[in-house]
């Protein structure tokens, strides 16, 4: 846009820019003018009343859909251990992602398993995603097994499950049936994952 063609009046210039904006800088100029000019802002607010609700509704609907869809793939590792021990090393995001990829892949396998075998044995499910050289029973304390069972029950009630922690492990999970859940030990590492049994 040729600067020499722009109106000298700031309000007119902003309106013109809004019609012909080509760059982020143009939009920023409009935004800054509106924030500083109550007259323009008031006028434009009235103008948008006829079309703004359509945009808002479309975004709200799309966002709601994301909520539903993402619930199926999101795993949560809410590290309460860090809250209790602020100085403790935190598992890095990239490390979590590596485990997450593994966990999600395992989740897909487990989900496929559910589809094929209606009532798989829980330890069998766990063994599919725990490293081969570690037995599930050794790595899953009994009270955590109970926690898993409790989670399943709570989820059937439709509520959100939060796990209690035990002496050696800190587990925080928002468990839903079929979810991949990460267990973090006190070092901040994630030793393994398991998948909660499906309701079906």
């Amino acid at each position: 846009m040729n600067p020499s063609e722009m109106p000298s009046d700031p309000c007119q210039r902003a309106m013109r820019l809004m019609l012909e904006a080509e760059s982020e800088q143009d939009w920023l100029s409009v935004e800054q003018h509106l924030a500083a000019c109550p007259e323009c802002l008031e006028m434009l607010e009235a103008e948008q009343a006829s079309w703004a609700p359509g945009i808002d509704q479309l975004l709200a609907d799309a966002n709601q859909q994301v909520c539903v869809r993402s619930t199926a793939v999101t795993r949560v590792t809410l590290d309460l251990n860090r809250q209790a021990n602020p100085g403790q090393r935190r598992t890095s995001g990239s490390a979590q992602r590596r485990w997450g990829v593994l966990a999600l892949a395992a989740g897909v396998c487990i989900a496929a398993g559910f589809a094929i075998w209606p009532e798989p044995d829980k330890s069998q499910q766990l063994s599919q995603i725990v490293p081969d050289d570690v037995s599930v029973e050794e790595r899953l304390p009994s009270d955590l097994e109970n926690s898993v069972a409790n989670s399943e029950k709570k989820q059937r009630d439709g509520s959100v499950a939060m796990q209690p922690d035990d002496v050696t492990t800190q587990v925080a999970l928002r468990a839903q049936p079929g979810f991949v859940v990460a267990q973090q030990d006190t070092s901040g590492e994630i030793p393994f994952f398991w998948v909660l049994p499906s309701n079906e």
Partner: peptide
Amino acid sequence: ISPDAVKASLYVARVRLRRIL
């Protein structure tokens, strides 16, 4: 940020989205 800054950002955002959508 100030309420007027919110209104300004909101208006510009809506105009831009309207053009696309």
